[in-house]
Computed example of a mutant assay.
Amino acid sequence: MSGTVRTLLPAYAAALESTRELTGPPLFAAELRQIADALPARRAEYATVRRVARACLAELGVPPAVLVRGADGAPRWPHGTVGSLTHCRGYRAAAVARTRDADGLGVDAEPCAPLPARVLAQVTSPVERAHLAELAAARPEVPWCRVLFSAKEAYYKVWYPVMGCWLGFDDAEVEFRPDGVTGTFVVRPVSGGARRVRRADARFDPVATGFPALRGRWAADAGVMVTAIAAPAGSLPRPVRPPDPRPAQAGRTATGTLRWAQ
């Protein structure tokens, strides 16, 4: 396992990645049940990202633990820890921290390629599209739209375990601060999302929750784009509203795929 993702997170987080499938140790019975009907490629993907996660837990001195998805699709972490999983073609990664150090972690990996135009229109605001145009003019070799998509995914992975409700792509905006090969960004909640009608509560305002803007980092290497966000302990609010009554909506991207399907 290598560690590009580790460079994007604070020292208190254990973060590892793998560019090949790992074959041991065996999965727990509960994990095997979750993928009993999956295709071989999906089973290998599921198993590898959990083996990477357990290696992260071991770095923190936490014994191997069952890492199954809950009813909402989000992975369940051992008591006293927070974490995040991600995978895309040829890449698996995990990050874990103790709750004494972090309120949340979010990591996301995407192919280092532009988004389809129809997806870009769904996941960005006019302000963001103007920002992306400026960035593309300065550094055209970077697929900024894909980095933006990934940054919002990472933010959602910090948001959802705390707030327990769906956050749309139009409920947050990203601002980049490019810096060489790696860079930083800030994701902040915004009011007045244009597609809020898809929510169970159309009056929901993410800004009013008190959930903060969060800074993250990104890097591109070997055809993969990785984003990471760490929320230090004490930086996030307690949930201010009950969980979204439509759990099936809680983890869906603008493309209709499960964000949490880890």
Rank of each mutant, 00 (worst) to 15 (best):
Gly3Ser: 14
Val5Ile: 15
Arg6Asp: 12
Thr7Ala: 11
Leu9Tyr: 01
Leu9His: 03
Pro10Val: 00
Tyr12Ala: 05
Ala13Ser: 10
Ala15Ser: 04
Arg20Asp: 14
Pro26Thr: 12
Leu27Arg: 08
Glu31Arg: 08
Leu32Tyr: 00
Leu32Trp: 01
Arg33Phe: 14
Gln34Ala: 13
Ala38Asn: 13
Ala44Tyr: 10
Glu45Asp: 11
Arg50Ser: 05
Arg50Ala: 11
Ala53Cys: 15
Ala53Glu: 05
Ala55Cys: 07
Ala55Ile: 15
Leu57Gly: 03
Ala58Gln: 10
Glu59Ala: 09
Glu59Gly: 04
Glu59Cys: 03
Gly61Ser: 11
Pro63Thr: 05
Pro63Tyr: 10
Pro63His: 06
Pro63Trp: 05
Ala65Ile: 05
Val68Cys: 15
Asp72Pro: 05
His79Leu: 13
Val82His: 07
Leu85Trp: 07
Cys88Gly: 08
Cys88Leu: 09
Val96Ile: 13
Thr99Met: 08
Asp101Gln: 06
Ala102Tyr: 05
Leu105Thr: 09
Asp108Gly: 06
Glu110Gly: 08
Glu110Tyr: 11
Cys112Phe: 12
Ala113Asn: 06
Pro114Asn: 14
Pro116Tyr: 15
Pro116Trp: 11
Ala117Ser: 14
Ala117Gln: 09
Val119Cys: 00
Val119Asn: 04
Ala121Glu: 15
Gln122Tyr: 00
Val123Ser: 02
Val123Gln: 03
Arg129Ile: 09
Arg129Thr: 09
Arg129Gly: 08
Ala130Gly: 06
Glu134His: 13
Leu135Glu: 07
Ala136Ile: 05
Ala137Ser: 15
Ala137Ile: 15
Arg139Ile: 15
Pro140Asp: 13
Glu141Val: 15
Cys145Pro: 00
Cys145Met: 13
Cys145Thr: 02
Phe149Asp: 04
Ser150Tyr: 01
Ala151Trp: 04
Ala151Arg: 02
Ala151Glu: 01
Lys152Thr: 10
Glu153Gly: 10
Val158Pro: 05
Tyr160Met: 14
Tyr160Gln: 07
Pro161His: 00
Met163Ile: 01
Gly164Ala: 11
Trp166Gln: 12
Asp170Thr: 06
Asp171His: 13
Ala172Glu: 04
Phe176Ser: 01
Asp179Ala: 02
Asp179Asn: 14
Gly180Arg: 07
Val181Ala: 12
Phe185His: 05
Val186Glu: 02
Arg188Trp: 10
Pro189Arg: 09
Val190Gly: 13
Val190Arg: 14
Val190Thr: 06
Val190Ser: 13
Ser191Glu: 15
Arg195Val: 10
Val197Pro: 02
Val197Cys: 09
Val197Thr: 15
Val197Ala: 07
Arg198Ile: 10
Arg199Ser: 08
Ala202Tyr: 02
Arg203Leu: 09
Asp205Ala: 03
Asp205Ile: 00
Pro206His: 06
Val207Asn: 02
Phe211Asp: 04
Pro212Thr: 08
Leu214Tyr: 00
Arg215Ala: 13
Arg217Pro: 09
Arg217Met: 03
Trp218Lys: 04
Asp221Val: 02
Ala222Asp: 14
Met225Cys: 11
Ala228Cys: 06
Ala230Thr: 04
Ala231Ile: 08
Pro232Gly: 06
Pro232Gln: 05
Ala233Phe: 01
Leu236Asp: 00
Leu236Lys: 09
Pro239Arg: 12
Pro242Thr: 15
Pro243Tyr: 05
Pro245Cys: 14
Pro245Trp: 03
Pro245Ser: 08
Arg246Leu: 14
Ala248Gln: 10
Ala250Ser: 13
Ala250Pro: 03
Gly251Ser: 12
Ala254Thr: 02
Gly256Arg: 10
Gly256Tyr: 12
